[in-house]
Design a protein around this nucleic acid. Structure first.
Lengths: 344, 344
DNA sequence: TCAGCATGTGGTACGCGTACCATATGCATG
DNA sequence: CATGCATATGGTACGCGTACCACATGCTGA
């Protein structure tokens, strides 16, 4: 494989001149440029990015550390990241942590060895350990979707509270008073934020929120199914369910079917996160949709800006609003409204 | 950032000895090893993979060049690749070509510059240009899902012909005789293979296949919708539709709704490619499902084997069987069967 | 006793592109 | 005419880990 020196020899110039031509840096006369380009083409020269990176301390590589690329929400985020990064000449390495801190740590040490220029991190834990591990080695970090403790970091997230509140508003307006809340792991900020947003709506409606109807589990179909089965056996049976992400919702829908409950006639359901348009033959879930692609794109923009000028010390937290989409998975409770689940 | 020389100095040994400790190569006494490890830990030493790669000509990096990570089929393949690669200490760079040859070429030249060890390629074109571009530079390639011209390559693919034939068998057994076939771009081998498999069933049933009912488009929802709208206005109206991938199927289902047709009462539909379990609240599409995860995993295994011992010249084509899953999107035509669409 | 091997450690140069510095010419400016 | 700048090109060393070779010791087996 030809090196820059081979090209230089063939073109009758110094290696550094070849470098200048290929990088369009410094002054090169048009004739020299042509000679070099011809020589490079003839030798089928392919620049060695490793050597370039080693010298310049820039790998033109980002990493996206997320929970599971299989979740269509994250897939879309990933696509946003990829497109934006690629437009700036960066490549992206993907890492699935499956919410497993050990896996996350393993990936992070690999990324440090690789000297990636920046990391987009969906932290598996809310302690800032992962973030500071990267930063102390000079790697730029932007946190996605979740908040972490310990020092200021750039964060790009969806509007969990406002989104959840919008869903709660919708249900309360429809007359529901006994609503079960199925959310993710209690270790994650999003899990709490979505519950908090839900509660906020109750306050505004001057209603008492019943913590006994909240379940913390995982953001998976299985967990959604299990949590739904549990709350649906309560007396009185909830008239509506809030699923804190799309997988939990799918699990809940399966539980409905298992128990012979119709949606929305017997139980209403609202969901945080949409399923991409593409998968829905007949979308019926009332959801708040996060702008997943934009989330990935925005986070990448910020990360690239930080890489370009690391001096900028001012960190920012960007919240991209989620939008309520009312479909047919929710229905008003039969008048007169049933007695409240909890007597105040 | 500490280098191997810093560690060596602190441990009182030569740099090469540190290298031996960190790579567990060559002989090192237990005491020396401990001293080095202590020194490395104290200095917070992180090996520089760039230097390692530059010297050893190994980047421990693979690339997965596919059409669109947003398609759940590819997402699952990607996950299979990622897991297998990671288990062997390799990272993966993802590249979305959107079936665009120009984008593909751009990515490939980037991957060459990066000196990736191997590429898993879902070729956007069936000419072998991309494959040979990589190979002439010494990069190992395994082709996924599609066949390419020009020289033998390792290929891992789903059983397009057999799968399509199974779907056709199913429809023909149910009495359908007027079946529209909606497939992908005519440039891609898969598009043809799926049609060919479909035709094969006709031969076995001693029936005449009507090429006028075949449409070539793209593997997208929009294209599926357009093609379906077109064939559904034919006279006589097809009683069943074969969608050559999941996106086309979704587009077709939307066309059904648009035209007020019920599935399966008015039109049956069979699909090549399943939607992952996870997304289906109530799976109803009769499909042949490809083992997507296994496909990615298998291809990666082969690629890693080639990287480990490039000498092995014997290429292989592995076909992973797709499996027929009969659900509720298909129904028998009302007896007596309608007259054939085409009079033989 | 000595070849031969396992064990343990070091020196030097290299992989390949470029940062940094140096040099040289031509031309404008004061 | 001297100074200064834009233009154009080259030399050397470096980024950091390791391939390759060399060397030293201790032990085994013939």
């Amino acid at each position: 494989m030809a090196t820059i020196r081979d090209v230089a020899k063939l073109a009758g110039v110094a290696p550094i001149t070849v470098s200048r031509v290929l990088n369009k840096s410094g002054y090169v006369s048009p004739e020299t440029q042509l000679r070099v380009e011809t020589a490079a083409a003839e030798l089928n020269y392919v620049p060695n990015m490793l050597a370039h990176s080693l010298r310049s301390n820039r790998t033109q590589t980002l990493a996206l550390v997320l929970t599971d690329i299989t979740n269509p929400f994250w897939t879309t985020v990933a696509r946003g990241v990829e497109d934006e990064a690629n437009a700036h000449g960066f490549n992206v390495i993907f890492c699935n942590t499956d919410e497993n801190p050990a896996k996350q740590d393993q990936y992070i040490s690999m990324l440090l060895r690789r000297r990636v220029d920046g990391v987009l991190l969906v932290p598996a834990t809310s302690d800032g350990a992962a973030v500071s591990a990267l930063r102390t080695q000079g790697v730029q970090v932007v946190v996605l979707d979740r908040r972490v403790d310990g020092g200021p970091v750039d964060v790009v997230r969806g509007g969990s509270e406002a989104g959840a509140q919008a869903l709660a508003d919708h249900l309360l307006d429809l007359g529901h008073r006994c609503i079960a809340v199925l959310t993710g792991p209690s270790e994650l900020s999003v899990s709490h934020e979505r519950v908090a947003g839900f509660k906020a709506a109750y306050v505004q409606h001057r209603l008492q929120f019943d913590d006994a109807l909240v379940r913390y589990g995982a953001f998976t179909v299985e967990s959604g199914y299990a949590m739904a089965m549990e709350v649906l056996t309560l007396t009185p049976q909830p008239t509506a369910i809030f699923a804190a992400n799309n997988f939990i919702a799918i699990g809940a829908l399966r539980a409905f079917r298992r128990m012979g409950l119709r949606t929305p006639e017997d139980v209403s359901i609202v969901v945080f996160d949409d399923l991409p348009d593409t998968f829905a033959t007949a979308p019926f879930l009332t959801v708040v949709a996060q702008p997943a692609y934009l989330l990935g794109k925005t986070a990448t923009e910020i990360l690239l800006a930080r890489i370009a000028s690391p001096a900028t010390s001012h960190t920012q937290e960007i919240t991209l609003p989620a939008s309520l989409i009312i479909r047919t998975s929710t229905i008003a409770t039969a008048p007169p409204p049933p007695p409240p689940c909890l007597t105040v």
